[in-house]
Simulated assay, not measured.
Amino acid sequence: MTSQGYGAPYAAEPRHPGWPARLGPLTVRAGTVALRPVRLLDGGEWSRIRLRDREYLEEWEPTQAGHWHERNAHWAWPPQWASLRGLARRGQCLPFAITVDGAFAGQITIGNIIRASLRSAWVGYWVSSRLAGGGVATAAVALVTDHALAVAGLHRLEATVRPENSASLRVLAKVGYRQEGLFLRYLDVAGAWRDHLCFAITDEDRGEGLASRLVAKGLATPPEQR
């Protein structure tokens, strides 16, 4: 029998531990970063940023049917929001809006949550191009990772990144994710099957917390100390 084989029944768990929640704040060069559940009213700003940032985002996101402008129009947000909310209520994902100084600035999601003896999920994110290099993604990944491992009851998170995506590679390195391998032709991105590097972190790696680690390194500060 493999390690995924049958075993004794597992004790009942909360339906969606760690959700809903508000995380942060943490202050970086670009401003004060916080995470909150995505809202239906985020649609206008979500669409405006993603339409403006097509060239910046499309190179790294999975290939999907339909035109970019159709998939990211204001009216495309309500069904996406409803789907994310439904998955969150079933304990299958943790979908957050990233805010900077209170304004919507991107998304970060803990997805494909599997519990029982695995307690694993992936993390994915995007941030407005106008905030690139300001520490926003780094702060968001630190906050959501701390929450997923300490509060939501997960043991391991994974992130997959194209080797060419130097910005995301720097984010994961700063936060403390370790590179574990290369997935060949892993995901259809921008119309072709692309190799991805696999990064991961487990609860044992977290120590006193990733957000606290950023503060100790001088990469972030509590808002009142800015």
Rank of each mutant, 00 (worst) to 15 (best):
P9T: 07
A8Q: 13
A167L: 05
P25L: 11
R226Q: 09
W126I: 00
A132K: 01
T63L: 08
C93V: 03
A88L: 04
H16G: 11
I98M: 15
A140E: 06
G153I: 00
L187C: 10
A192E: 14
G43S: 14
G207M: 01
A12T: 10
P17T: 13
E204Q: 10
S129M: 06
A88S: 09
A121P: 07
R170G: 05
P163C: 04
S166M: 11
W60A: 09
S120E: 10
V33F: 05
A140T: 00
E55W: 02
L41F: 15
Q92T: 10
N72W: 14
P223S: 11
W193T: 03
S3D: 14
G176C: 05
A220K: 01
L23Y: 05
W81S: 07
Q64P: 09
F183P: 04
I98T: 11
R90K: 13
V33W: 07
F183C: 13
P223W: 11
W75K: 12
A150W: 00
G91L: 08
L172M: 01
G134R: 02
G7Q: 05
P9V: 10
I110P: 00
S212L: 12
G191K: 08
Y56F: 14
H155L: 06
A30V: 04
K174L: 06
P222G: 08
P25G: 07
N112C: 09
V161L: 15
R170D: 05
S83C: 10
W77E: 06
A76G: 04
E70M: 04
L184G: 07
D188K: 06
D195A: 09
Y10L: 15
A140V: 07
R156I: 04
S83A: 15
R39N: 01
A139D: 06
P223N: 09
W193Y: 09
A216W: 01
H69V: 09
V141I: 02
G5Y: 15
A173K: 15
G24V: 00
G218I: 00
